[in-house]
Write a protein that binds this DNA or RNA. Sequence first.
DNA 1: GGCAAGGGACGTCACAGTAA
DNA 2: TTACTGTGACGTCCCTTGCC
Length: 281
Amino acid sequence: MWWHQHNLCFRHPVEEDYSSGDLGNKVATIAETDESAESEGVIDSHKRREILSRRPSYRKILNELSSDVPGVPKIEEEKSEEERTPPNIATMAVPTSIYQTSTGQYIAIAQGGAIQISNPGSDGVQGLQALTMTDSGAPPPGATIVQYAAQSADGTQQFFVPGSQVLVQDEETELAPSHMAAATGDMPTYQIRAPATALPQGVVMAASPGSLHSPQQLAEEATRKRELRLMKNREAAKECRRRKKEYVKCLESRVAVLEVQNKKLIEELETLKDICSPKTD
DNA sequence: GGCAAGGGACGTCACAGTAA
DNA sequence: TTACTGTGACGTCCCTTGCC
């Protein structure tokens, strides 16, 4: 996913390049839905959904399965951290969001407010170094020194990233175009700004809900909510697919185990038959 | 090399289930 | 009741493979 504004792009590095086809895709989907609302195809589709959507989740199925069969592993509630994080930052604060600037720097926002910034390594986020927004004292050895201004003149919190950019935590939602804003609910707003400029140049990564009165603000809020919902659903779909794959793998391994078990039982049966049956020469 | 088929992965929508 | 979550369905993109 890329968010463009001026010369700045953020990208979640673990994601594929979400091509511009998404918009066309969306339009096509909506168009088709509208066009064929009365068609029989939709009715069939609805019937199918009625049947299929009543299935419990993969997590539930597999966990029930695993409670019956000790050998079947449970699907964890959360992904293991190794899956979530690049290998070279395993010993540091675990980032929940990783973004990449157009200059190749990585910015990871971890749980608890820790921000990690890295210069581009040979692969992924190698060389990531931690900046923690806490009062915990000295930074860890080898950490990139990032200047932090708790409150600047324009009422924002700023992180001066070595290079030429500033990571800004804003107090109010900025006027970024809605399609560029990745709204994340109550999360604080972060922007990348050129340090000398007064106007925000970066991408609003999250918008904080304020008092909304005008229709424009309401529209922006609706857009923000929609963006948030889409983003969450995107992540949910990824997680769902991951669980589905895991579920299928578990079923396959269970099939393998049961086949071996079946084979053993057949052999045992044959042995018992040989023992019990009278030999006729 | 060009092309079509197949498959994997993705984003989005719709909707049922669940938690608050 | 409402907001949120999980998942099937669908359309699209991209890559691989086999055929010509």
